[in-house]
């Protein structure tokens, strides 16, 4: 469980990094900001409370593994890694610019701390499962975490991996679905319905925990529960809001990807500060 102090610390960190996501979006011309803001609190809980990592040793063998299967959220991941000191955060000023190590989708060979180069949807979950299976086979202690988009769950490869994880009882894998209910073209229920997501995962042999993906107590409790599970892989269906924290982006399909001018940036920052 989180202490009140810890929770406050996480909330403060999340706010500070949301601001940074807005800044990077402003300087680079455009990012997948909507989905970066919806996954954000999960990422902050993982990196600042839950995962066993060492920014000074990005390749430390026993570190927990993390795969951002919805790789377009790379801007949010990069901001976290930069803040933790995996690399010089000033490099983010050139995010997306020619010659920068950062594309919108992060490259594991260029960005320290990134365990898998994702961006093509539907790859990250099987990649993460492979890492979990590798740990088990070799008797290693690391835990593998993965964030999948809800639209991403359209991909057949997500369900191929889900079936395999159930089959191999990958209990050292914890998966979040960032369920913001929007994909690129609109609400998932209109584009291609994925519900009931919990019933689907259960049918594939998973334990399902459903939470508010912006509440740090719930996120941390769900992860603790996932560690205690001994029979099945665990998926945490995190109900989230696309664009969370920036009032004019919240729940808006149009903010899947976008840029900000100075005025919009100021409005976005003001909104983030207000909600904090």
């Amino acid at each position: 469980m989180l202490t009140a102090m810890e929770k406050k610390r996480l909330e403060k960190k999340a706010r500070q990094l949301r601001e940074h996501i807005v800044e990077v979006t402003f300087t680079c011309g455009g990012t997948h900001i909507g989905g970066a803001l919806s996954q954000h609190d999960i990422l902050v809980a993982l990196y600042y409370k839950l995962m066993k990592i060492d920014p000074k040793q990005p390749d430390w063998e026993d570190r927990d593994r993390f795969v951002l299967s919805k790789g377009h959220g790379g801007v949010g991941h990069a901001v976290v890694l930069g803040d933790l000191g995996f690399f010089d955060a000033a490099l983010l000023d050139d995010f997306n610019k020619t010659g920068s190590p950062f594309g919108m989708h992060l490259d594991r060979l260029k960005v320290p701390g990134v365990d898998a180069s994702t961006g093509s949807l539907g790859h990250g979950l099987p990649l993460a499962l492979g890492m979990a299976m590798g740990a088990k086979l070799q008797g290693r202690s690391w835990h593998t975490y993965c964030i999948v988009g809800d639209g991403e769950c359209h991909e057949g490869s997500i369900w191929e991996a889900a079936m395999a994880a159930g089959h191999y009882k990958a209990t050292n894998l914890t998966v979040f679905v960032d369920k913001n209910r929007l994909s690129l073209d609109g609400p998932t229920k209109d584009v291609m319905n994925i519900d009931p997501l919990d019933g689907k995962f259960e049918a594939f042999g998973w334990r399902v925990i459903t939470i508010d993906g912006h509440d740090f107590d719930s996120i941390c409790k769900a992860v603790e529960d996932s560690h205690a599970e001994e029979e099945r892989p665990v998926v945490i269906i995190a109900n989230t809001t696309k664009g969370r924290g920036v009032d004019f982006m919240e729940g808006q399909t149009a903010w899947h990807y976008g840029g900000l001018d100075a005025e919009m940036r100021d409005k976005a920052l003001a909104s983030i500060r207000r909600t904090g």
Binding site: C28, M104, G119
Partner: peptide, 8 residues
């Protein structure tokens, strides 16, 4: 879609 990165 050069800025997007090599996956794209």
């Amino acid at each position: 879609f050069g800025q997007s990165g090599t996956t794209h």
